[in-house]
């Protein structure tokens, strides 16, 4: 895990802080890819009940956001393809493996699975499948902090895809955040396909970022395959929100480098798109960039890759030994109030 740099002059401090941010971002990308590669194998081996939804190709965008936020202070509501963002934000690897493998020791205790996990009381909501639902939720978390007088310096962020941007919840949530001028960042990964639906059948505007103007929020557009650009643009959006600039909409253009889930081979994605600039792998580009910038070395990156793979392996091995939920032990309580469930 990269160390955080401290004790520098202002300019040097900014440089060091960017270097640190880039290193943390890239490390999270590697770690997420290592985990997701293992999850894909486990799925194919029939070891995972339910779906596996990967963030391959979206790591730079997601990790840039997660790395720009501080757990304990900020709110991060990851969506389906945000393993890298979760990792960068500081989600415990075991939370992921336990939820995917149905361990009762995980945060969802076998009651929900895969990417539907979180620790809401620690600033990381557990997504529901209905796209856009997290947008007003994050808005509400921020409004609560405003009412409690502890909003200052806080940012709330969540992610969506171009498909999810077609929902009513997206519109209502972003509009509400804009009306309330919340320190909110919405990162929209335009990954070209919502399951199998291409962008031409999803929206009719030329650039999704143009919608920012309509909502009265700041808009940013970024090449989602370009790690350094993601770090800078998303970092700037988060800083703007933190500084009182109101909601920020970041549109990242990239290609989903997997099917919708591991059950889907993505046959409908044209080769021409895969071979185009949007189809580049942000991990390859990120590695090249971090080396060129002198922020890391080939040796260090190799070590990161090895250690991440080992940690993933160890985490999976641990979780495979853990108890699964027991229907006779589950309390089957949908109500928090004692006695309420018994009354039905």
């Amino acid at each position: 895990m990269p160390d955080v740099q401290t004790n520098q002059s202002d300019a040097a401090c900014a440089d060091a802080s960017r270097k640190d941010l880039v290193r943390r971002t890239f490390y999270a990308m590697i770690r997420a890819r290592a985990l997701e590669s293992k999850l894909g194998s486990l799925y194919k081996a029939g070891q995972i009940v339910g779906g596996v939804y990967l963030g391959k190709g979206q790591e730079a965008v997601s990790a840039s956001l997660g790395a720009s936020l501080t757990k304990g202070r900020d709110i991060f509501a990851p969506l389906i393809r945000d393993q890298a963002g979760r990792t960068a934000f500081g989600e415990d690897l075991l939370d992921a493996t336990r939820t995917y493998l149905g361990s009762v020791l995980g945060p969802m205790r076998g009651r929900d699975g895969n990417i539907h996990r979180g620790r809401p009381a620690e600033g990381m909501p557990a997504m529901i499948s209905h796209l856009g639902a997290l947008i007003p939720m994050v808005g509400g978390m921020l409004m609560a902090r405003r009412l409690q007088g502890r909003l200052e310096g806080t940012v709330g962020a969540t992610c969506i895809g171009e498909g999810g941007s077609s929902t009513g919840a997206f519109h209502e949530g972003l509009n509400m955040a804009a009306v309330e001028k919340l320190p909110f960042v919405l990162v929209l990964a335009n990954n070209q396909f919502a399951y199998s639906t291409p962008t031409a059948e999803q929206f009719a505007c030329e650039h999704l970022v143009d919608r920012a103007k309509g909502y009265g929020v700041a808009g940013h557009e970024v090449d989602g395959t370009n790690m350094l650009e993601c770090v800078d643009v998303i970092g700037r959006a988060v800083a703007n929100a933190r500084a009182g600039g109101g909601p920020q909409l970041v549109v990242a253009n990239l290609l989903r480098l997997s099917g919708h889930g591991e059950h889907d081979d993505g046959f409908y994605v044209p080769d021409a798109l895969k071979d185009s600039e949007v189809g580049r792998d942000c991990l390859d580009i990120g590695e090249q960039q971090i080396l060129e910038a002198g922020f890391s070395t080939t040796k260090e990156i190799e070590e990161w890759k090895e250690s991440c793979a080992e940690e993933v392996q160890a985490s999976v091995a641990t979780v495979q030994q853990e108890p699964k939920p027991d229907p006779y032990q589950d309390d089957w309580r949908a109500f928090s109030t004692p006695g309420m469930s018994g009354l039905h």
Binding site: A133, G140, M143, Q148, M176
Partner: peptide, 28 residues
């Protein structure tokens, strides 16, 4: 003042907002 807040015509966002505020310790 400040505790009775007008919302846009956005029922989905109103309840979504309340859920988030509740997680953060409020009673919307």
């Amino acid at each position: 003042p400040g505790r009775v807040i007008d919302s846009p015509i956005s029922e989905d966002a109103m309840i979504g907002m309340a859920i988030g505020a509740a997680v953060e310790g409020m009673r919307p």
